[in-house]
Simulated assay, not measured.
Amino acid sequence: MTKKKPTILVVNDDGITAPGIKVLLEEMQRLGNVVVVAPDAPQSGMGHAITIAKPLRLDKIELYPGVEMYKCSGTPVDCVKLAVDRIFKDKKPDLCVSGINHGLNYSINVLYSGTMSAAVEGAIEGIPSIGFSLDDFAHGADFSHTRPYVYGIAQQVLQNGLPKGTLLNVNFPHIEKGIKGVKICRQANGCWVEEFEYRKDPHNRDYYWMTGRYDWVDRGEDTDVFAINNGYVSIVPTQYDMTAHHAIPELNSWAFDVK
């Protein structure tokens, strides 16, 4: 008896024509039957945004031979929601993978990332989910060194599943650093120090352009930032339950009774 191939939903935030999603779908085709649903334009930095004030469009396209693909007018999270509700309908996919993102999504970036939010939405839907990102913002980024790890990590998730409410945040170092191996990490404590440059447009109207730098305040050697900086693939088990459980006992000691 032939074992049925798993179904795999592929999404991203860089848009359906981004090079990273092509690499991802090609590796997923080695594991199962692939359906791609991705934004029709780049949606980086959208976080967990959803579209509620305008219609959503979902159009089937033929971009790569033999691949079932749809472009969506909405956000990465919209892509997952529409895929589950309108394409897969009564049977959810066996795996949801997002990326491969052009640029890292380690540390605090996970909160802003459309790539990771798509994977989070997959996990909320009860689908084992993974977000993949590469330390290279270039449109022509070289993803070749990520391929065996993308395949291997996805294969492990299909075989073993993931704990309930958990997904994986996977980041790859730049190809120049090579890959020394894989590290299971925690999310580094860091933040963006933003600056807003004041400018004038051609019509002499004021506007601001956000710039800034990432401030890595956490020097622990068990973090995703440390792993990437030292040539390792970082895998952070991530959850969408944002409850600060450690704070509950302290808050229970406060006097909230109003008299």
Rank of each mutant, 00 (worst) to 15 (best):
Q43C: 06
W192F: 13
I16V: 00
N169P: 02
E26C: 10
D241W: 04
I248L: 11
S234F: 01
N109R: 15
G212T: 09
A118N: 04
F132V: 07
I179M: 02
G178N: 07
V193G: 15
S73P: 01
I179H: 09
Q156H: 08
K71T: 02
H245S: 11
N12L: 08
C191K: 15
F172A: 13
R30V: 00
P42I: 01
N169A: 13
F256T: 08
G152V: 11
N229C: 09
N101V: 10
F226W: 11
R57A: 15
S253C: 10
V233Q: 12
Y232E: 10
K71D: 03
C79G: 09
K89M: 04
L251T: 11
K81G: 03
A53H: 14
I175R: 14
G178D: 08
K177T: 12
A141M: 07
Y112D: 02
T2K: 15
H48K: 15
L31C: 06
C79E: 10
L25G: 04
V84G: 01
K81L: 13
I235G: 06
T17V: 00
R205S: 13
S44R: 15
T75P: 06
P173N: 12
S98Y: 00
H139V: 00
E125M: 11
E27Q: 04
W254V: 02
H102L: 13
V110R: 04
V84P: 03
H48Q: 15
P55K: 01
V84Y: 09
L162R: 09
N33C: 10
Y70P: 01
I52C: 13
G74C: 07
S133F: 03
L158K: 08
V157F: 06
I248Y: 07
V193F: 14
I130Y: 07
P148I: 00
E195F: 12
V10E: 02
G140M: 11
N169I: 07
D218V: 03
C185H: 06
E194S: 14
F132P: 05
F143A: 12
F226L: 10
P65Q: 08
E125T: 12
E68K: 12
L58E: 03
E194W: 10
G74A: 05
S129H: 03
I153M: 07
S144M: 06
T115V: 12
I235S: 05
D136N: 05
S73L: 04
G161Q: 02
K81Y: 11
N105A: 13
S73G: 09
K180P: 04
W209P: 08
G74S: 04
E27F: 04
L25M: 09
F196R: 14
T243D: 02
V120E: 13
T243A: 12
Y151F: 11
D201Y: 12
Y198S: 15
G99L: 03
G190T: 14
I16W: 01
T223L: 01
K177R: 08
G181A: 05
Q155N: 06
G178R: 07
F256M: 10
V170E: 09
M28Q: 06
I179P: 05
A188M: 03
E197S: 12
A154Q: 04
G99E: 03
A247S: 15
